[in-house]
Design a protein around this nucleic acid. Structure first.
Lengths: 351, 351
DNA sequence: GTGAAAGCGCTAACAC
DNA sequence: GTGTTAGCGCTTTCAC
């Protein structure tokens, strides 16, 4: 039993402040502050005083109150990111790289998911601003500009990742390019183009499934899909594109209905996002292996397990590390007023 | 162009404070504060003053400084959680339910991943404490008690989820029970017990792969595995249990080596965690379908895609929602000093 | 080399 | 019903 108020200090006792350390060492609060936060080089403090203070601080279990520091310096050392969900490989990976980049800069990463709910998104951004975060990374927001507006109003640097906005620089995947690559691969593998060239008649057509046609990513993927399809096969009909939702259940129903109406799977299937894919395979797995003989499957987005299904899948793997690295580069760059759009190419992975 | 300093206020201008609103309305700072933070019921403020203040605040784009409020009230309205990674279905799902529970209580959820790095874990918990979070949920920590100690020292309520500690109540999956179920299913499906009973000789044995034998979860799963194995088949040999890492690469090598040494797959394979499974299937997918004829596969943990591989897999799905709900219940309960261990049963999912 | 004092923006007595 | 005042714990001139 030492008389000290050391490491086992009873819970809920007032945490020690610089004043306690000052009193304990006979130094002043400003000296303690300087010693403990590293700003002491400018203050030519005697080595002896410094060590004494540091010892006292560690004995007392002192640890700075970051809210007080933040208030005084009007900075927080926090950097925020909002994502629609963590339960998705793409966003989880973006989050992972966000944390790495943040830590590399001695910032504390705060990621909050908002479930694609505009109200929750706004509330969250508002909260981050109120905590004085240094900057905000906005990913997969339903209304990037509504959030951009909140940030601009508060004078907080921010950047859109994945989905672009007009109020800040945006770093997005090159969805158009990726969709073209994927579509071309699917059509080639399906033999549809060759069949058409040879005058052969083939039942069914290339099907696009999942996502929301009006959102930026899906819109560009559809554009890429359409363009390649038109070049290689011909016009795309309305029913070839079913992009009304990311929801697994909805997409499960869609593919089932499609299968029933057509009496089989389409010769090629372009599934937009692993989330939609998850729904689709719930139905697909009920089919016998033979059902896949005449169907090639592609998925925009990547998942390690999806690469091991009982039929081959070509996937587009987005460059999350590159997206995040570029996002931080932009956040740190000279405040180029113009809201630029930067596109990062994904990678095609075939199995 | 209104003369107002409204929504489009130039970036980086000082954000308005209650004093600005006070000056603009002729009220005092405390009145403004009371009106704007809802604590005004006790202060019987005239409806007229209140609306006037609210209007001025919204015109000025006022939003409270949460660091100042937190400093004054010594609370932050934040609740922290640390996870080893977001790139894993189990932790992503835990995180998701953590956010739901937090929001239901009007707390701002802050999840930080620490990559199973003890140093990063401690630094992160320290930072959360410094921000005065209301409580901390610790999941998948390498050293729960080291973190528990930091929290106890700062008088912060905390709870261990998934991996138990001795310094705080722990809510964990019933790994022992889950492993028994899974092992029993695998042995039954493999026909090993029947073969043994019938005096038949069968090549190979049930293999346990992945995880770290010394960590709590793995240890209990091994215990369950061993117990059922001994009851149904007999003693477990050293080589039947390979639990040295979660790393996909390591486990890919392990299963490959095993396959080579035994000249085929084991009659039953118990893979511990989807992460290890991800590595295992990198090798398994290189094998022809016939290779799986005599091998039944199980995975402790669940992934939607893993349920659609080209061989059937039995999986254990942990009850993340239940774990998190119980964690919050405990955090809110009367500060029962004893560090209890609460186990939540998972669910067996067969495909 | 070090201390005194002001103030970051907010809340909560207490006064009137 | 509303204003005055005193901090919360820290950083930062400025003085000595």
């Amino acid at each position: 039993m030492t008389g000290s108020d050391g490491p086992m200090r009873a819970p809920r006792m007032r945490k020690p402040t610089i004043y306690d350390i000052a009193a304990a060492t006979g130094a002043s609060a400003s000296t303690v502050s300087a010693v403990l936060n590293g700003s002491w080089k400018q203050r030519r403090i005697r080595e002896e005083t410094a060590t004494q203070i540091r010892r006292a601080a560690s004995e007392a279990g002192y640890s700075a109150n970051l809210q007080a520091r933040g208030l005084r310096k009007s900075r927080s050392g926090l950097i925020g990111m909002i994502v629609p969900t963590h339960e998705d490989r793409f966003f989880a990976s973006l989050g992972h790289h966000f944390e790495l980049e943040a830590r590399r800069r001695d910032l504390c990463p705060v990621i909050v998911s908002t479930l694609r709910d505009p109200v929750e998104e706004a509330r969250t951004v508002e909260t981050l601003i109120q905590f004085n975060v240094e900057s905000i990374v906005i990913t997969g927001a339903t209304e990037p500009d509504a959030l951009g507006h909140l940030c601009a109003q508060a004078g907080i640097r921010h950047i859109n990742v994945d989905l672009p906005g007009r109020l800040a620089t945006s770093v997005v995947s090159d969805n158009y390019w990726g969709a073209k690559q994927l579509t071309e691969t699917l059509i080639r593998k399906s033999g549809l183009a060759a069949a058409k060239a040879g005058g052969e008649a083939r039942r069914g057509h290339v099907q696009f499934l999942g996502g929301i046609a009006s959102d930026h990513a899906t819109a560009n993927r559809i554009r890429g899909f359409r363009e390649v399809h038109e070049a290689l096969i011909g016009p795309v009909s309305e029913t070839q594109i079913r992009a009304s939702s990311y929801d697994p259940n909805v997409n499960e129903r869609l593919i089932r209905a499609l299968h029933q109406a057509e009496g089989g799977l389409p010769p090629a299937l372009f599934v937009n996002s692993t989330i939609a894919f998850e729904g689709a395979i719930r139905f697909l797995k009920t089919l016998p292996d033979e059902a896949f003989a005449g169907c090639v499957v592609g998925c925009y987005d990547w998942d390690p397990f999806a690469s091991f299904l009982h039929f081959p899948v070509t996937m587009v793997r987005q460059n999350t590390e590159g997206l995040m690295a570029e996002a931080f580069r932009q956040l740190e760059g000279v405040a180029d007023q113009s809201a630029r759009l930067i596109e990062i190419r994904p990678e095609l992975v075939a199995f």
